[in-house]
Design a protein around this nucleic acid. Structure first.
Lengths: 188, 188
DNA sequence: TTTTCTTTACCGACCGATCAGTCTAGTTAA
DNA sequence: TTAACTAGACTGATCGGTCGGTAAAGAAAA
């Protein structure tokens, strides 16, 4: 009952995500979001009654569950730490389109909306990511403290390489970082 | 001839800079910029006839010359590489208010304005920064390639630590990164 | 089968508010 | 007296958001 959607939920969120990742929350106008999805503004409000904020929230939630499924779960899976890290690297390359797309965690954390609905989720995602990463490094034989520290540095380098890549207009820094990551994490 | 300004050029640029660093280009409304400077909108247009874009451009230019004067010049000065790096670290801590303030190079590089007036300058600043840093590392005995690579990694980690600090709502990651930086760069 | 009925997806037209930016009539100090 | 400076009222455009209504699909009724 009811007519079919022109664009299914997953594709819809994905298109919205691209916009937020490109121009951030304030830059993502409803006009841009409508254009990117092929739906008119009013239709977007049918799908997301709470408007732009809900869109960003669901996009961020989707990113969180994507991270959980494609990165953290494999990181926690059985197998040698090295191969688990290799798996993560491969997924990261896909997730950030080889460095062409920015990270939502950076683009949605502008101070204008600090204390808002994104702050908490951004913290949670960062925390989960570092937790899973440091668990792997713990498995690899590092002590708690250096495992945690190296996990944090990895996430920071990932973010930094994306910022730098965007700033320089080339994906090279991101790609080189990903390439160096397995060896980087392997050394004690 | 003419009366004195209520707020001098330097303070004015600094106040504008704070806004852009907090909320980015799209988030920085004229109302916010006026509030932050104590000037009314029309007065801002007297100081910056080309409007918001000129404000952001001059803020970015100022940041570039500040970097040149307080970071790159000391980096190129005489003295042991280690002490030059120590000097940079001290200045970075001040420039980013101990991790409380974001980097313009990140906040002004949203895709909405890509190809715009900031893109080129952002690239130039990144380039200059890495150039000066890798020159120091060259002085310290590293070969060209690893000096350049380590310089890039340093800038990326700086950016990443700022992103991570903002996302987590604490300055700890930034401060720890700065603290570890001298030792990090010292090792061959 | 064909005709309703119900439900859902979608959209054109509109809303008040705010956006960046302008204009003019002062105010202030040299 | 003059020119740098400022304020407030204004502009058209765009902002996020709302509304009444139409299009399309399956279910129920004929």
């Amino acid at each position: 009952m009811g007519r079919k959607t022109l664009i299914d939920e997953e594709e819809l969120i994905s298109r919205l995500s691209n916009v937020f990742r490109e121009v951030g929350y304030e830059g993502a106008t409803l006009a841009l979001l409508a254009e990117a999805t092929g739906l008119k503004k009013a239709s977007l409000y049918h799908r997301f009654p709470q408007g732009k904020e809900q869109m960003a929230r669901e996009v961020l939630e989707k990113a969180g569950s994507w991270l959980e499924e494609h990165i953290l779960a494999p990181l926690r899976a059985a197998g040698a730490p090295a191969s688990r890290i290799d798996a993560m690297v491969k997924q990261l390359d896909a997730f950030y389109s080889g460095g062409r797309q920015a990270c939502l965690l950076n683009m949605l954390s502008s101070a204008r909306i600090h204390g808002g609905p994104f702050t908490e989720m951004i913290e949670r995602v960062f925390e989960a990511w570092i937790g899973a990463l440091s668990a792997v490094l713990l498995d690899a034989g590092l002590d708690r403290k250096t495992a945690r520290s190296r996990a944090e540095r990895t996430v920071m380098m990932l973010q930094g390489s994306l910022v730098f890549s965007r700033g320089m207009g080339t994906t090279r820094p991101f790609r080189e970082f990903l390439k160096s990551l397995p060896a980087e994490l392997r050394k004690i």
